[in-house]
């Protein structure tokens, strides 16, 4: 049995009459990239937001890195959050701060007693590893969409997370930049030994970055497995249409 870093059982979440998650079961294994696919509005973002408790579940069991998250107080929750990196769909760079200040903000607020030299070294090393050392003094508004995504990833990596969530990392990017981002996701796994959930509705991204696929249909995971298992042998019309849309155009 492989070690699971995240275990989700019977997870439910509704917004009024909108029943978004209806009994989600899922595991994320150590060291893997799990791709979560699903139509727009199917609840992919809601799922990972619940995992970091930006949203509260209605019911269900969630265990992350050995801790039952419904039993955590704010302090322990925050400690757990620091072990998880969250790359937001819109990058979520603080637009009143430079790239450098963006990277420094989570670092200096959570780790006290770092020297100026250590901070600068960490920032420079991360910017190098996402390939954007020259942007250090730029404002987010001066960056392209792909650059913002990279900085967003670098900013979450600065606290050395064990788990990474990528919310639609390639959405709204041109195909070439998509390939760059896919490579970055794989590179992050190599360098930082992270386990990741990659949310996408782009099958190229899924194929390039994922070890396993999980397809969210009507509030539940309908198919979980390798790319081949899920798509090439798909019989469910919801999943088939996904494949056809991406590759048969």
């Amino acid at each position: 049995m492989r070690e699971a870093v995240i275990e989700i059982k019977e997870l439910y979440k509704s917004f009024g009459d909108n029943h978004v998650l209806r009994g989600v079961d899922l595991e994320l294994y150590k060291g893997e990239n799990l791709v979560v696919l699903g139509k727009s509005g199917s609840g992919k973002s809601v799922l990972i937001k619940i995992l970091v408790q930006l949203l509260k579940q209605d019911s269900g069991y969630i265990k992350i890195l050995g801790q039952d998250i419904s039993k955590l107080d704010l302090k322990s929750l925050n400690k757990l959050r620091l072990r998880i990196g969250f790359a937001f769909q819109a990058s979520a760079l603080y637009d009143s701060m430079t790239v450098k200040e963006n990277m420094e903000f989570p670092l200096t607020r959570n780790i006290k007693n770092l020297s100026r030299k250590e901070i600068d070294y960490k920032i420079e090393r991360l910017l190098d590893s996402v390939g954007l050392p020259k942007t250090i003094n730029q404002m987010p508004s001066e960056l392209s969409g792909g650059q913002k995504k990279r900085i967003g990833v670098a900013r979450t990596l600065i606290l050395n997370p064990e788990i990474m969530f990528y919310d639609e990392p390639t959405a709204g990017l041109d195909p070439i930049t998509c390939i760059d981002i896919n490579n970055l996701i794989n590179q992050v796994r190599e360098e930082y030994k992270t386990s990741s959930i990659v949310i996408t509705h782009d099958l190229t991204c899924a194929k390039d970055t994922g070890d396993r696929m999980a397809v969210l249909v009507e509030g539940q995971f309908k198919a979980v497995g390798s790319f081949g298992e899920v798509f090439e042998e798909a019989t469910d019309p919801n999943i088939k249409s996904f494949y056809d849309y991406n590759f048969m155009r």
Partner: peptide
């Protein structure tokens, strides 16, 4: 406007998940 745009672009969420 400033806080509103931070809210809709998930900057507030980003603070929250980095324990700020």
């Amino acid at each position: 406007a400033e806080i509103g745009s931070m809210k809709v672009t998930e900057q507030i969420d980003a603070m929250e998940v980095s324990a700020i």
